[in-house]
Design a protein around this nucleic acid. Structure first.
Lengths: 251, 251
DNA sequence: TGCATCCCATATGTATACAATTTTTATTGT
DNA sequence: ACAATAAAAATTGTATACATATGGGATGCA
């Protein structure tokens, strides 16, 4: 080991994993397509060993599927798989919210979540929302959910949520949304923000059941959102996952 | 590659993974303990490459933890981590039951579950239960839960449940239970069997909410069960997970 | 012309060799 | 005697070489 390109201090394995994951989520490697190790070696520039590691990790992650005769292929998901993943996430985040509420959260711990909520508020209340604003919303929303998950203070649960979220909320490079659906998206954002407010309030007041219920409802909203986007063939929110669906729907 | 011991047709990687997992779950590798690759090579008899694969898989599985400086250590769980895992499983299986109920299950699909239920019945109703009967109960119960999970017909959910169950319901070799707690265990089994009956009935009658609720209650029973076992320092049910707890409680 | 069999090529699974970092131990200085 | 530094040993990350299995293509036979 002598050379280390610009991005030093990153293991070859991680580099390969990131590169391959991006290839999959961006759709350049299509569902059902077999992944050649040698091909991956060429595209990633690292040796076979770290590539192999990355492949194993991506399989465990659920993005690849082992071929009985050997090797891996990009896993193909149905539309319902993605919708199920969203509901799944709702159930898990519901549990996280309930844990947070029941176990009690210190004012200090709740602070970051409230800040995130305020940030989102600032963005949602501006009318009309711009395209850039919507893009940054995606990141801010992810942060809110991550903070909420952390509040459960349950390592197994946090782990599981991270896992479950990989599918429907992946954010690959090519995230596009049609201008025409912006107003509709804004409406959805307003409702989503209501959910956010309610869950924070419920946690603060130690109402576990209410906290859980609203996160479940939140997921159902996301599912409706996705279904709508699928029908309209427009990228609304959380659409990147569609790259994983067997039959290309959008675009 | 010329030799292939008795168990042929099993890759070295899988062999190493099984061997190492057993070492971890049986407690011979203790929580926090660093895993030497060379050591693993010696104990498993395979080369470093498949050992390394197995280690990566076990890390993704949640049994190992990566050490920043390199290598892996056996992950250490707190007692609450295990309890959380049980509740987590309850929530996930609740969703599975709800999916099964809401989506409708054909009579043919429900058959295996009913058979499993009948098998469990036969075992639970005999009074008193023998030690052997209890042992086989563990396997039969696992089968019932697996069948139930499958009935959801949701690939992401099934995957997630398998993941979540790895921890608290692992069944390593050295599973022991004190004779003295057999009667008490029997009482718990009777309640658990009630839950099983209810969930099957709810699915059959397409009562999603009821199916979900009973599986959650079922998990709470398991959690109470575990807490009891922890206090009494006896192996009751699903105790193997204790091998993973940081400070050894039982034995 | 179609099908089956055999051979070759390619790709994966495994093993080992090499490089670099980390950890431990020993030695020296205060 | 203790601490700090340096050197050595061990361990991990990476690369490559080798063996085996699988798939495709070509050839021969029906």
């Amino acid at each position: 080991m002598s050379e280390r390109d610009p991005d030093r201090a990153v293991s070859q394995t991680v580099r390969a994993q990131l590169a391959l994951r991006d290839l999959i989520l961006s759709g350049r490697l299509r569902p059902g397509e077999r992944i050649s190790e040698l091909g991956a070696v060429e595209t990633t520039g690292v040796s076979r060993t770290p590539v192999r590691m990355a492949l194993v990790r991506l399989e465990e992650e659920g993005l690849l599927e082992a071929i009985p005769s050997g090797g891996f292929m990009v896993k193909a998901f149905t539309e319902r798989d993605i919708l199920d993943s969203i509901e799944l996430r709702g159930v898990l985040e519901g549990l996280a919210a309930r844990f947070a509420a029941e176990r009690g959260v210190s004012v200090r711990d709740l602070e970051p979540l409230k800040e995130s909520l305020a940030e989102l508020d600032q963005l949602v209340t501006q009318d009309p929302v711009s395209m850039e604003a919507f893009s940054s919303y995606v990141a801010m929303n992810a942060r809110f959910h991550a903070l909420l998950t952390e509040l459960s203070h349950s390592a197994p649960l946090i782990r599981q949520i991270d896992r479950a979220s990989a599918l429907p909320f992946a954010s690959p490079s090519g995230f596009v949304m049609a201008q025409s659906v912006l107003p509709e998206a804004h409406q959805i954002l307003i409702i989503a923000q209501d959910h956010h407010r309610i869950v924070v309030d419920a946690i603060e007041n130690r109402e576990g059941a209410r906290a859980e219920a609203v996160m479940r409802e939140h997921a159902r909203l996301a599912a409706r959102n996705l279904r709508l986007a699928l029908r309209n063939r427009t990228h609304l929110d959380l659409l990147p996952a569609l790259a994983l669906v067997r039959s290309p729907v959008a675009e």
